[in-house]
Simulated assay, not measured.
Amino acid sequence: MNRRLATAAASILLLVATVATAVPASAAEPAASAGDAGAAAGAGAVSLRGTGDTVLTSAFGEFAGDPVRISVDARAAGNTDPGTTRGHFHVRHVHNDGRLVADFEGDITCLGVGGREAIATGVITKGEAPWFPGLEVVGRKVSVSVEDNGRHGDRLGWVWAALGQPVADCQGTVPFIRTTAGDFTVRG
């Protein structure tokens, strides 16, 4: 992959992550059963919920200034237990001229929580990346990391397999960019 395409892909994915749809992830999922609620309420339950907006920095080259939104609604009965993890994510990245860079969503496959930080990984089930013709995003893994700093000033990080970066369950990166709006809550 040439440098321009790699930079563009990274920027698009970042923006996609930041500009997720305004529909809460919980609205897109079926209601939890009583068994799910009981498991989540038990000892060891963890969760990551919220939406955060950010604006890409100059480190993202041609995507500097682009808005990105990321929404995550993830929960698990135990920390880093893929077998009990449930949830949804949505990422939306729009170029600063209004053109769509990428928009994708999917299912959470693993959630890891430590203090006020969380890493949620998942698989894209629906989406597009028109900025990158020919780039197939469906079926690719993603990782979103969050640092919960209260109502303002959360931090985000992400890794996108669609751009050739490896992603394994509950693998992530340091939350490297501050949110400009929204709020994430990490519990566990």
Rank of each mutant, 00 (worst) to 15 (best):
R69I: 09
D66E: 07
V19Q: 15
T125P: 09
V138C: 05
V101N: 15
M1V: 07
D154N: 10
R151C: 06
L48P: 03
P175Q: 02
V23Q: 04
I12S: 11
G52C: 00
D169L: 01
V167A: 04
G78K: 13
R3F: 09
G122W: 09
R99Q: 08
P24H: 09
G115V: 02
L13W: 01
Q165T: 11
L56E: 11
R75Q: 14
R187L: 03
D97M: 05
P130N: 02
T21V: 11
E117F: 01
L13H: 10
C170M: 07
T51I: 09
R140M: 10
G42R: 15
V159M: 01
G38P: 02
V72F: 02
D107A: 08
T54E: 15
A64T: 08
D53M: 13
E29A: 01
S26F: 09
L163D: 11
E128I: 13
T7K: 04
T18V: 12
E29T: 04
I70D: 13
R4M: 15
R75Y: 12
A8E: 10
G112W: 01
L56Q: 05
G182Q: 03
S145R: 12
N96L: 10
F176P: 08
L15H: 02
N149A: 00
G44R: 06
V19I: 06
T57P: 01
W158C: 03
A6V: 13
A74D: 07
V16Q: 08
V159L: 11
R140Q: 15
A181D: 10
A8T: 12
R75L: 03
A37G: 10
L48Y: 00
F63A: 14
W160A: 15
E136R: 15
S47P: 01
S71Y: 10
V144T: 09
S26P: 00
A32P: 12
T21K: 02
F89P: 02
F104M: 15
E62L: 13
V19K: 14
H88Y: 15
